[in-house]
Design a binder for these strands. Structure first.
Lengths: 110, 110
DNA sequence: TTGTAATTTCGCAACTTTGCGAATACACTG
DNA sequence: CAGTGTATTCGCAAAGTTGCGAAATTACAA
């Protein structure tokens, strides 16, 4: 997990978010949202935590999942943007978990 | 090379786990297809319900999402197996929702 | 019935993710 | 220091998903 330590702390959320939205606005569909980047980072972290909790290495997980260590590494990289449901399920299945997906309403200004 | 079992606590359970793991590993196609088919069906239904709750047509949702009706139709088809995280997030975003993803432990009937 | 909107199916190009080896870097231990 | 195991990066082919139009089908109201 390369860069995952720039997460805690974000007070001036509103202003920063607005600004960033503008910055990302002309970019590939994938990154047009700050939310997406954040979600990807979160998924990477979850995969890492799942593996760590199981106490196995990337190589071992790779074997369980049926792929290679470099692929697992890619998934745990906070900057990776290519997460897929298929792969999440493979990871989950290998670690006796299942992927639960929910749509939850966005509520601004909690 | 760390091995997973250094605990002589419960041999019986270990054996069961090993067996289960072997089964699961040996027939990824079959077991996974069942679970996946179920999961895909559920996602299709959720998308439909979300759209229905919003009271819009496939064409309208397609416009919001930035695609075409045929794509939405495909997503709402229970037999569709190609759901992606990216598309789920686009759908969610268009309807003021967000996609929440969790790994939850499988409780196999003890 | 006719007309209209909505849904479904089909085919293929374009784009995205995965597979996987090889090389590199990092962290330990002796 | 060398040696071992782990993690990371790179590059490209294969596999998978999306884009999108057009035609066929269904649903429903007038």
């Amino acid at each position: 997990m390369p860069d995952n330590k720039t997460k805690p702390s974000k007070p001036t959320r509103d202003a920063v978010e607005i600004l960033r939205r503008r910055v990302y606005e002309g970019k590939p569909a994938r990154l047009r949202n700050l939310d997406e980047a954040r979600a990807n980072e979160e998924i990477a972290r979850k995969i890492y935590e799942l593996r760590a909790a199981a106490g196995i290495t990337q190589t071992q997980l790779a074997r369980l999942v049926g792929t290679t260590a470099s692929v697992i590494c890619r998934l745990e990289d906070a900057d990776y943007e290519g997460h897929s449901l298929a792969m999440l399920r493979r990871i989950a299945g290998a670690l006796d978990q299942r992927v639960e997906i929910r749509f939850v309403p966005i509520r601004r200004s909690a």
